[in-house]
Write a protein that binds this DNA or RNA. Sequence first.
DNA 1: CGATAGATCGGCT
DNA 2: GCCGATCTATCGC
Length: 195
Amino acid sequence: MQRLPAGLMVRAISRSFFDRDVDDVARALIGATLSVNGVGGLIVETESYDVADPASHSYGGRRTARNQAMFGAPGAAYVYRSYGIHWCFNIVCRPGHAVLIRALEPTEGIPRMQGRRHMKDIHLLCAGPGRLCEALAITGTLNGASTLKAPFHLSPRADAPQVCVGPRIGITKAAAALRRFGVENCRYVSRPFRK
DNA sequence: CGATAGATCGGCT
DNA sequence: GCCGATCTATCGC
C-alpha cells in the first residue's frame, strides 16, 4: 500500500490477483492501469487463453521453447512474436493460462508512444496487441519477466466499468468462444463489441 | 466503408 | 515447408 498526499490509497496488483481463474482475471484487468517505464494507460480490451483451448499456445499442456514463459509464476509476462513482425503481450495466471492484453486507452507518456508508433492519433496508439507492444516498447527481452515489478507497473481499477464480452479476434480455432473482454462503446478498443 | 495482399519470423509437423 | 492470438497500404464500391 502506498499513501498519496490526497489521502487516496493506491493498491499495487500482486501475485494473488493472477492466481485464480483466467477468465476472471481477464475481466478484472479491464480498467486497470498498465505501464512500462512510465508509458501506458488503462486496459480496455483483453482475451483469455488456457491449456484446454485449441487456440492457445499452451494447448494440451505441452511445453515448448516458445511457450515456456506461459508456465511461469502468476504475473509473469509471456511475450511472443506474431506473424514475424509484431509482438504480443500476455500476463500469466495459473500455469498454462494467460491473458492477452489487446488494447489500452493511453494516459501516460503519450508523446513517447506517438514517436514509437510514428502517428499522432491517440485512438490508434494502443488499439491492438501489436500496436500496444510497439507503443510501450514491449519486446521479447521482457518475455518471462514479472509484471509485478519494474519496468512494469500495474494498478487495479478504482471503479468497475461496464465490461462486455464477445468472441476473440484473429484466431481460426475455437473462434466462437466468448473470451474477449472489453469496455463497451470505447473508442480505444481494436474493434467494437457487437451488442 | 469492406476486402485483400504483403511483410517476415520462428515454432512446429 | 506451412501457417499464425497482426498491421498497414491499397484497392474497389
